[in-house]
């Protein structure tokens, strides 16, 4: 409560300062917009939580734009936003990159913040999640369980990976997992498949069933709604899945080993807070969010936590500390 008072005090001071020096117009609310086609799905929900939290705490003016799915619309939507005098515009979705780049180039003073990737334009800001770090921990945990044959998680020396589309960011998940497995459980192998779509739970379920049928005990999915099918398949097959982006443990209780969280809510909130309070005004460049800043973490599902041997939990915690300290470097070989 006091923190909030302090904060609003800060904003008020910043506002009056700006007013008295004539730096900004009478409008002292920071205007934030966010544009994506995924606000109702996993990662997008997390972004929305961060935005809504910022709206509640920091009193920003918030506009949400859903892109829909027609590629023809994207450029007009970005132009409309660029002309809307917003202070910050969050963008999420790789299919928007082309339209975003064009608009950002034409409006270099508009602060576009691209979530989850780094593009070429040097007038934009990028929030780059180090998903490979969290995926490394997933690989380490599942790999150790498989290598030591811990029931009920292990079922032979193979782990599965189901990706959505075969795009760079999803490859990062796979590479992190493979590295975590290779470093900590060298006898275990990762079998990877890509669904080719993020929107097809039935396909995810089908692919997962095929993998479970091959004797794979645990599958890590990075496939959006397609991945929901993987979780359901794990429950149906009596096997295990690892969720992604948000806490998916409740999706299939008893069949979930954990979730690799990308805390977009924390990252988005931090960026807005830094800008509103003036402690870290948003400038072009890359903001990296990884295990060290708490923006990426592995959450082991509580209902199965007691079935994991303590020594493995200790090893995973040691790995986390290793990543935080920089002792363990998760590299992307692309």
């Amino acid at each position: 409560m006091t923190a909030r008072k302090l904060l609003s005090g800060l904003i008020a001071t910043a506002g009056t300062l700006a007013l008295s020096t004539g730096l900004v117009a009478a409008e002292d609310e920071v205007r934030v917009a966010a544009i994506s086609g995924y606000f109702s799905q996993g990662f997008g929900i997390s972004i929305m939580q961060g935005l809504e939290q910022a709206q509640a705490d920091l009193g920003i003016d918030l506009t949400i734009v859903d892109t829909g799915n027609r590629a023809l619309d994207y450029e007009e939507q970005f132009n409309n936003l660029a002309q809307g005098s917003y202070d910050l515009i969050f963008v999420m979705g790789w299919e928007l990159v082309d339209a975003l780049s064009k608009t950002a180039e034409a409006n270099p003073d508009t602060r576009f913040i691209f979530i989850d990737g780094v593009l070429e334009g040097d007038t934009m800001t990028y929030i780059d999640f180090l998903e490979e770090e969290g995926s490394y921990m997933v690989g380490a945990l599942a790999g150790l369980l498989a290598q030591e044959g811990v029931a009920p998680f292990a079922n032979g020396p193979e782990l599965g990976f189901v990706g959505g589309r075969d795009i760079p960011v999803i490859r990062n998940f796979l590479m992190g997992m493979q590295q975590g497995v290779a470093d900590n459980a060298p006898d275990v192998r990762v079998v990877d498949v890509f669904a080719g779509t993020f929107d097809d739970p039935a396909k995810g379920s089908e692919l997962a069933m095929a993998l479970f049928g091959q004797g794979i005990g645990t599958i890590y999915q990075a496939a959006g709604p397609t991945g929901e099918g993987v979780l359901q398949a794990a429950a149906a097959a009596g096997a295990f899945a690892v969720g992604v982006d948000i806490d998916q443990c409740p999706s299939a209780p008893g069949a979930m080993l954990g979730s690799m969280l990308k805390r977009a809510d924390i990252a988005v909130y931090d960026v807005i807070e830094g800008h509103v309070t003036g402690t870290a005004p948003v400038v072009p460049g890359t903001v990296q969010v990884g295990v060290a800043s708490g923006g990426v973490e592995l959450k082991i599902c509580e209902d199965i936590l007691d079935q994991i041997p303590q020594d493995i939990l200790d090893q995973v915690e040691a790995i986390r500390e290793g990543i935080v300290s920089g002792e363990i470097a998760v590299a992307l070989n692309d």
């Binding site: 949400i64 859903d66 007009e76 939507q77």
Partner: peptide
């Protein structure tokens, strides 16, 4: 109608 509704989304609080 389509072009107009694209601006509606940015400038009004109505959701998609």
């Amino acid at each position: 109608l389509r072009a107009g509704s694209l601006l509606m989304e940015v400038e009004t609080s109505a959701r998609r």
